[in-house]
Nucleic acid binder design. Structure first.
Lengths: 110, 110
DNA sequence: CAGACCTACAACCATACGGTTGTATATGCG
DNA sequence: CGCATATACAACCGTATGGTTGTAGGTCTG
């Protein structure tokens, strides 16, 4: 994942309304107004949330008549998950090194 | 992961400096000033970043003499990764349902 | 065509964020 | 003790964010 892109993805995920939109649109397509009906805020606010998600690549939109269908993009979710996996792997590296150190408390590699 | 906690975790990860700090402190402990030396910003700025990470539970601190050692918390990273995995699983659920639909184009369950 | 519906977008507002500088406090060291 | 180091914290500043309302443009339908 490119530098600034990760920023946008995590930023977009840092809001429960947006996470819920991603959830719902990964299950099935929903129009913006269909999404908006379920949140205690204006249509325009939800529209902005969708725009943030689209900007981050977490959802895509396609036209159907007068409505815009929003669909979650699982690839972006996966890329974010892999980035976190990479952090976890780094930690495991430390754990390994610590194990080695503990396993050979006598010093260098002869 | 609790509601507001996920917000904080993803928000904290939405900054490359902070992600780098998490990376480095998952590899090994570093004092705040040791971390600060490698970023093009003031010590206070880095200190704030560490505070954000600590608030999110992505790092912990422990005193050693006059310095504060920062250590990455892999559990929080894992919890965030699992949340993304759950989203992916939801998508897979849709994919399954779509497969079922495509596999039985003749109608309901008789 | 007229009206309802869905979306887009601008303007505005309060608050949060990322950065700065400056000041205060604690610890290690000669 | 006296000084340098390491951290903490407050005040300040410009900009982004999340929300609002209002206006305008497509699109379906009677």
């Amino acid at each position: 994942m490119e530098e600034g892109r990760a920023d946008r993805v995590f930023r977009a995920l840092a809001d429960s309304t947006r996470r819920d939109i991603v959830l719902r649109t990964l299950e099935a397509e929903h129009s913006v107004s269909a999404l908006a009906r379920d949140y205690p805020m204006s249509f325009a606010a939800v529209q902005k949330h969708v725009a943030v998600l689209e900007e981050a690549g977490l959802v895509t939109k396609r036209r159907r008549g007068r409505e815009q269908l929003v669909r979650g993009d699982v690839d972006t979710v996966r890329r974010a998950a892999r980035l976190l996996d990479a952090l976890e792997a780094v930690w495991r590296g430390r754990a390994e090194r610590m194990s080695e150190i503990l396993a050979e408390p006598d010093g260098g590699t002869p």
